[in-house]
Amino acid sequence: MELSQMSLFASCVLIFVSATFTDNILMARFLGMCSCLGVSKKVDTSLGLGLAVMFVTAVTAALNYLVYQYMLVPLHLEYLKLIIFIVVIAAFTQLVEMIIERTSEKLYNSLGIFLPLITVNCAILGISLFMLNKPYSFWQAFAFGLGGGLGWFLAIALIGGIREKINESALPKGLEGPGITLIIIGIMALGFVGFSGMIKI
């Protein structure tokens, strides 16, 4: 069935699921790798960064959708989307960092240090750019952002869990750190390949 024939809610759910699993931003597109390699040593920090990324991805996807549809398209400035999206994401993360810092110190202590990392996370920019490839409506774009963020969250949480269990000091020296992580990610990516073709939109 084509997206346009479905109800808005059904299409949103479908887009959400496909962005999370079949099109997983980290496993299928290999975006957001640098911060994933850097922070996935432990489960709790992985969860922290993953949650922050999920939140920022969903909101900036919606924000960037509005900026694109209602500012860039009318002014015929579509080619500026890359730079404008980066600026919007950076400003938004800064703002969120400030608000979190003021409202909940506990959340700030567990999430706050990851927010500057997110400013330059390419997965977030990638999702904002990919959503323009399809003729999404606002809510569909938001579902795509949320799903993409959840996908990244799942992936880094899984990698964090595996890395925590692995006794790195028992590995050959050349495999420590990023080496074994990339191997883990590669094998996990093979698993995610299993989802491909499950949903076609």
């Binding site: 002014l75 400035l77 080619y79 404008i84």
Partner: peptide, 11 residues
């Protein structure tokens, strides 16, 4: 001019 102005204004 429009694109530069828009970028500047946004920033």
């Amino acid at each position: 001019l429009i694109s530069v102005g828009f970028l500047l204004a946004c920033g």
